[in-house]
Design a protein around this nucleic acid. Sequence first.
DNA 1: TTGTATGCGTTATCAT
DNA 2: ATGATAACGCATACAA
Lengths: 335, 335
Amino acid sequence: MAATLRDVAERAQVSMRTVSNVVSGYAHVSERMRRRVLDAIDELDYRPNPVARTLRTGRTGMLALVVPEIDVPYFSELARDVINAAAEVGYRVMIDQTGHDHDRERELLTGGDRTMLFDGILFSPLVTRTELLEMNARTSMPLVLLGEHEFDGRFDHVAIDNVQAAHDATTHLIRLGRTRIAAIGAQPDEQYSTPQQRTAGFEGALADAGLTPLRIEAAAHYRRADGYQAARSLLERDPRPDAIFCYSDLLAMGALRAVFDAGLRVPEDVAIIGVDDIEEGRYSRPSLSTVSLDTPFIARNAVARVVARIEDPDTDAVELVAPHALIARESTVGR
Amino acid sequence: MAATLRDVAERAQVSMRTVSNVVSGYAHVSERMRRRVLDAIDELDYRPNPVARTLRTGRTGMLALVVPEIDVPYFSELARDVINAAAEVGYRVMIDQTGHDHDRERELLTGGDRTMLFDGILFSPLVTRTELLEMNARTSMPLVLLGEHEFDGRFDHVAIDNVQAAHDATTHLIRLGRTRIAAIGAQPDEQYSTPQQRTAGFEGALADAGLTPLRIEAAAHYRRADGYQAARSLLERDPRPDAIFCYSDLLAMGALRAVFDAGLRVPEDVAIIGVDDIEEGRYSRPSLSTVSLDTPFIARNAVARVVARIEDPDTDAVELVAPHALIARESTVGR
DNA sequence: TTGTATGCGTTATCAT
DNA sequence: ATGATAACGCATACAA
């Protein structure tokens, strides 16, 4: 069996208190005691039990990262950055996948299941703000929202300026001289605010230029297959778009392939731009123009905020907006 | 403060024992008692503390999935399947990223840090078998290895037949009539067995056909940038390869782009095939021929094995080999 | 069927 | 600076 603190204490002929002091690096321990304890620890191959420590201290040293789908590149790239940022401040990360399931999200937030196993949640939500409010009322788990823009001061929040990002992408298409501009990614049946904001930015940019949307195609999720289907149906209509703004890079990857399968060229016949700047888009053919979101910034600040709230639950909620930048690649400007 | 079992007991005027029975769904509780307890639980909004439960039972209900990089599509797609498979049998998954760091791997396995927070480990390792042996000697954490082939009966193991997979991919290129066949993905300085096995399959298939490798290019990691660089240096040489076998799909995505940037065509000038069958390769231009690995099979069986070992630590180690299948797409056979 | 009491391994309080 | 001991919240052996 694994050795316990008590075993070490007996072996070293000291009290448990002293062992605990040594283990947790307490300052006032005489050098002689420290050596004796350290030797005993070594001989018994003692390792502190984190569960017992957690029960006592109330801290698990773990954060939960909640995303819809971990195999969507934007989320896996974000997860990578979050894991690294958390490791730097001594936290580990549990990843939860909601699979677009509202009930699953709700359960995670209300602690229905096994919450309390972590000290805080980083939440890239599908749920709406109002849903969040009622949920969070029941539990006081430190929570940081990722990626939404609406803010009412009650949640820590690392946001993306979705409206502006969509506006920038659309304006880029307009400046290329495109006039029949469509979009892919609306979710009319859902209440998620991200698509709504991107639609607002898209329509706003067109209106600013005296244009109207050719069409806004829905996408159930933001996967390649959804982008492919949406682009297909866009290309079958008359008039055909000469540019498509996709609400995510992954949608754009599907759209790219659909345009190709229809026997058309990108960007000559149809220009395509996405949002996220996933690595895949830097190698695709053509490479994908996009609006780059600063995921390291998002990860670093989200972790910093949740840790701050863990350490002081009464700290004021803060909203940060992550920088974004338009990146023009082959899918809009050619080679 | 959060309500405890004791609070509920007081409120319902029963013993803690009875409350515990109700909460854990124990059969022999009278209907009257159950109601009283349930009401009290509701009124106090009581939720069991999983940490305390864990300290008592020794089970956390969590598995760790250890991968080199979560944002490599093969691993994020595997993670998705593992999370789902684990959820079905009541476990949650913590994802750990080693970042190709041997020390980090070692620490995770020896429980240096905060191990014991999970009941078992699913390990997609960089380390070699011999390293594993010494490590696992120190701790008896249930462990399942993913993806390696060598087996010595001491570890549960869901394997891939890397030699055969590489052999199949290479044979496919040979049957297309290619003769100047190169490979990308060797790691001469490392001891990982996966690249070694794929090299063996590659060389074996060529030998079977009376051919010799044109060249085997190294790749430090298996990312797009590594594939791009390796393919570039392959294309600069004379004679130029007319086919390239990449040890992973992601390497192939980089190679695809490099061939394109060199002004050549795939598959006319250079045929390319990978291994993994990531979703990206189904949408790329050209779509990527590959050897498909059955990640749902791997995930399902790995979870089943680790759970079996958690429940009975003395169960015999089992090796399973996941099926694989050659999938010919545009990057070798054209449209 | 239900109650009582102990211990899981640690940290923290109170002494000394 | 160190020792004795009481929690942390739960599950279970043992009793009734």
